[in-house]
Design a protein around this nucleic acid. Structure first.
Lengths: 285, 285
DNA sequence: AGCTGCGATACCCCCACGGTATCGACGCCC
DNA sequence: GGGCGTCGATACCGTGGGGGTATCGCAGCT
């Protein structure tokens, strides 16, 4: 009787996000009437009104909001199943490999040490390292693109992941050399957020677009450090960012910024020996 | 391009579990040929051989095992989406309620205190308490039957759940009064597992069936304590089980048994205020 | 009133899903 | 070794439902 299909969930998510049947249909590459019918059928099947229709558009009901949230995670789980199976099939042909993902520019030293140590383990496999924008790692893990990730709490959400803590460190603010604040030995976060002319930069979203905001748009760390050196931006980063600093950028500790915890995380139910070995190696560093 | 449907996943899981197309088709209430075709189509779509067909039956390939694991969690996520939406719809009509699940017979005192304390909170909602067999709580949480659970690590798996630790305690073994070992003030676990004639009982699985084994089959704690008093079984339990003991059953500490940690757990992405309040109340007890 | 944008309804078509019949391959047993 | 049973694959067919187009009903706005 139940039998909710992923197609219906995809349709519902599209409508719930667009709040407009026409645009949702367009996004789905189909006409509007069958979409209306599909949603109506889903509502009948669930015995719940998901959307409030007006002639001006659509709003979500309470159950609708619940389903939007739940459908997203369900669809990610299905996508993960698909991708992991595909990857397992490729691994059967060539060499098996595990995909490790980390925020671009963070913990490069840690990654290098980890890869070296892991490669020395008995029956270690190839490790594909993928670097991505901030906040993307968890999604890549959940949707099956990656097997294991380095995350930074509290910035990255650990919801629904298994993890082991690796390191904890304070934070520093990166400023252009010669800036008035660089004389200080420490700063408080409210002093840093108000610095005129030094906004925090904006990183691209998953789709490559940028949110609106005052800061400059950046794509990589060279660009970011360049902008900081030029006095066009500042950024708060973990202490370990000091390792690879240019001479025209200085780091000042921010004493009241939250501690950053670096963790190695993997999706629950992951039974892969390679991931387990990698995690064990990481915790022993 | 992608578009894996839950129907296909259900079909695959059925075949992978039965390792026989005919029986799987029967279980699914359909004929065998369309099932064969569906699986073949899924394999084409994923670009992976999932099953090795022989004329004697079927075995799983590597990618097939991956998909079996992943498909189960994906299907549970879909089922959870469905159930939580249904429950949200009912909640809209009547009173909203949160479902708390715990192992039958465990932590009754804790539950009572928790319910009292939570009921005294501002805008608390009704709490449905469900008791289930050991090891079932996590599944009920993951598939949307429940919103929050009391679990006992390391017996229950916390994979994919968020949780807060409530208490930690040692374990005792429950023996019939008068048994030779009851003279001891403490025991080691190997002494307990070998006791002749006192096997550990077997609890029903999710489907109500029992695994094969030496111990007696039990359905509830009255039955269990009766069997212990009669000298037909023994069981290792957390210390708190001492609270409600009959006079003909005695508890002896097992010094090397793992510590049992009682946690309150909930599914990730749970946005409900009621669950958050309940968890906060529990951690303050 | 007329126009515009929205979702629902009416109607149609076609494919994909499911059913029946049958085949081909393999193991078993007398 | 030949007959038989088991199991999955193939061939063929019918139908239902998912998707299309055309149109309606309704509400704001000018």
């Amino acid at each position: 009787m139940a039998a909710v299909e992923t197609r219906e969930l995809r349709y519902f998510v599209a409508v719930a996000e667009e709040l407009n049947f026409g645009r949702a249909a367009q996004r789905l590459g189909m006409a509007q009437p069958p979409l209306s019918r599909s949603i109506a059928q889903l509502e009948r099947r669930l015995g719940a009104t998901l959307l409030e229709r007006t002639s001006r558009g659509v709003t979500l009901t309470g159950p609708g909001e619940v389903l939007l949230e739940e459908a997203r995670v369900a669809l990610e789980a299905v996508a993960a199943a698909e991708r992991r199976t595909r990857r397992a099939a490729e691994a059967a042909d060539h060499k098996p490999a595990v995909v490790l993902v980390s925020k671009a520019g963070a913990s490069t030293e840690l990654i290098a040490k980890l890869l070296d140590a892991y490669a020395a383990e008995p029956d270690s496999v190839a490790v594909d390292v993928q670097l991505c924008g901030p906040g993307q790692q968890a999604r890549l893990l959940r949707d099956g693109h990656a097997d294991v990730a380095l995350l930074h709490a509290p910035y990255d959400s650990l919801a629904g992941l298994e993890y082991e803590v690796l390191t904890t460190e304070g934070q520093v603010v990166l400023l252009p050399a010669g800036h008035p604040l660089t004389g200080r030995t420490e700063l408080r976060s409210e002093e840093v957020s108000d610095v005129p002319g030094l906004p925090q930069p904006r990183w691209p979203q998953a789709d490559g677009s940028y949110l609106e905001g005052p800061g400059p748009e950046v794509r990589d760390h060279a660009q970011l450090h360049g902008l900081i050196a030029l006095g066009r931006a500042s950024v708060i980063a973990p202490e370990s960012a000091r390792a690879n600093l240019r001479s025209d950028v200085v780091a000042i500790p921010v004493v009241d910024a939250p501690q950053v915890t670096t963790v190695i995380a993997w999706p629950p139910h992951s039974r892969s020996k390679a991931v387990a070995d990698l995690v064990r190696t990481a915790t022993r560093l």
